[in-house]
Design a protein around this nucleic acid. Structure first.
Lengths: 222, 222, 222, 222
DNA sequence: GATGAATGAGGGTTCATTCAT
DNA sequence: TATGAATGAACCCTCATTCAT
């Protein structure tokens, strides 16, 4: 469950001091990004404070404003960096047309994204909780991307390759389950009896999740 | 998707003016509760402002403090009103021992709660996003309640009445899918092509969800 | 050290319920007076709150305002009730012209007042600490009263009946020492090793104080 | 009577603009300290407002919080700055064992402190008036320091070098008289017929006070 | 780049007071 | 009398941001 953006302040500072690879400005921006993700994902846009972000990034508040122009812009940059990669990253595999393979892949990619970027995932969730006022440009893209998948799934159903179901609801349920591993990381940790610093073992989860989805679609897992 | 606690300010005010049933103080407290749910669920504890809560309830800020003692207490009251009823409301049916029936019931209850109390559900989610620092007393209860269910499910598996799987993960996946209909209400609305004021038709969702879960558990839906 | 106005809230309430002698309104006003003295003497005019006064008197805040017209007026009433009796009560004995007797009497009266009315005494002190902006009408009276005493003392000195000193400073020093037993009640209590609820034994203090003053004036105590 | 901490707002501002000596931050802290002394000594802890302190120091309220962390801490800092130096500054002279000399010295030091730091002295008085809840750590020190003096005085009495009296009461009376010149500065000013901006002539007061105390102890002044 | 200093707006909360009942 | 309800002003303090250096 511990991921880059869950690093503590001191670790971030260490990263900055031992500049691994990146030149100064880039490194600073990366530290700010990480810090902002941590704060926004925990407290939402309104609840996050630039003071906390600056401290977490090892900067003073005025210095932070040297790199960013406003809290709002910083937030929107992060939000759109989620959205931009998102619908493309979660497109169905175009190389294959096997429902089992495509759906397995899809589930795995969504789960990986959630576990690799829990902070960004949570920012999106918190934005949606807040009513999604910043998502105006996102919805059309998301709807289109979903419809493309729906078309494929519906065809599979028409071809008798999977059981008949509401494709939109299927996609939302997959979304809900995978997103859950990011948003409810704390609860997952507790329920699985892991210590707060223990890392989640991803493989069994991926396996269970895939099987569950495939069976739920009336497909026999391997 | 529109529910009591999603009412807009003007609607709340109307409720207050046309005092349907409740006497003054009770009505005010109910309005405050509704307003607080709306604000906390949208912005989290830190991000919500007493000013917004007061306005939504049709009060001035000092007047709000005539009814509540502090923002924190108001929040905790709401949070624990979720938690208290929760684990008991989501216990497995003790009257039946049929996996299909018990799981169907469970899924339906969780879904109903999410759709009937999206605001409260979101408050819980936002609390978990924030790290769950107010949930200290909750975890033990939740863990115990989960373990009771795990025992039952494991017995079913041992008795060959359902396929072998990780019961804890199953429960979390159900949690994720049902919670999703509260947390991601906006997105669901958009994806299903509903207008913001249109009500979600609960039955098809419940049907699809139940079938999906039962099949995922290796059980044949009716 | 414990005096009427140091009574706790519950005692005041008891006083009110068991109405000893006074009719309702009078009793209420007395309770308010006592409560106001306690609060103003502890926190000063600005620091005292009508809420605390009301609670101490066993009233609600609106009810308090039924009896008083404003915090300021309540305060000024108390302040002037100190001042009015003051210069007359502390006049020199006109029946005697013996320095020893007159000064002894004066010291004793001042000490008694301080120990009998520590609250009122402290209100005066707190008013002086605050700059004495409400004492405009008081100064001329006080100055006149002091000058009368100064005249007498100066005559005694001219008649060789006491050592030569600055009469005004003498009077201020007496003032300081006696007032001290009211203002610094807590410290006196601690220094004399008394428990907070233990009563101060007045007689030895009066004796020491008188002797000290008389000797300081070059007069032989009895 | 007019002393550094009694400066008016405009004078403080002038001090800041004409930065005599101190660099910016130090000067600001000094101005805040002065302003805080003025306000706390006038109105007590509860009655003083950070707005007034800020204005007196020539700052906005948020700017004040750039320098201090809270009203309470500012107050406690001031209070303990009185207490810390106090018991040491008012120890008896160890070089001499002559009652007359030691007592004269003591009286003079106490008087000087009161006249040099009337604001701080008044803060202590207002704290005692309020019940001394912040003085928990102070009492033991004060008691010990007093007891040391009591031992010395008692020895003098046993050696027949001064008249027999209650040493604790003597010390309290001295305390009361000297403290009076700080706490009751306004009244002293009025009684001595000084204009509000006129400075008190300290020497005659010191002389009278010393003589008074020595005679009160049965010692012949020089 | 980096930081001390500074501020208007707004945060949660208490204040003295009023009004209807 | 007595109290619930209500409010504008003020409370202490933090906010995001700017500016000079």
């Amino acid at each position: 469950m511990t991921t880059p953006e869950d690093d503590t302040l001191s670790e971030n500072l260490a990263d900055n001091l031992t500049g691994r690879g990146k030149p100064g400005r880039e490194r600073m921006l990366a530290a700010i990004r990480e810090a902002a993700i941590a704060e926004f994902s925990r407290h939402g846009f309104k609840g996050a404070s630039t003071k906390a972000i600056a401290e977490r990034a090892g900067l003073t508040k005025p210095h932070l404003h040297y790199y960013i122009s406003s809290k709002e812009e910083l937030y929107e940059d992060l939000l759109y960096s989620v959205l931009n990669g998102w619908s493309s990253a979660f497109a169905f595999d175009i190389e294959s047309d096997d429902p089992k393979q495509v759906l397995s892949h899809y589930v795995r990619k969504k789960l990986d994204y959630a576990l690799d970027n829990p902070g960004l995932s949570r920012i999106f969730t918190s934005e949606v909780l807040g009513g999604g006022r910043n998502l105006g440009r996102y919805w059309p893209v998301a709807v289109k991307s979903t419809q493309q998948k729906v078309v494929v799934i519906n065809r599979w159903m028409a071809e008798g390759r999977m059981r008949s179901l509401d494709a939109r609801l299927l996609l939302m349920q997959i979304w809900g389950m995978t997103q859950h591993y990011a948003d409810y990381g704390v609860q997952v940790q507790v329920m699985l009896g892991l210590a707060p610093d223990q890392t989640l073992d991803r493989e069994p989860i991926a396996r269970e999740l895939t099987n569950f989805v495939l069976l739920g679609c009336g497909l026999a897992p391997d």
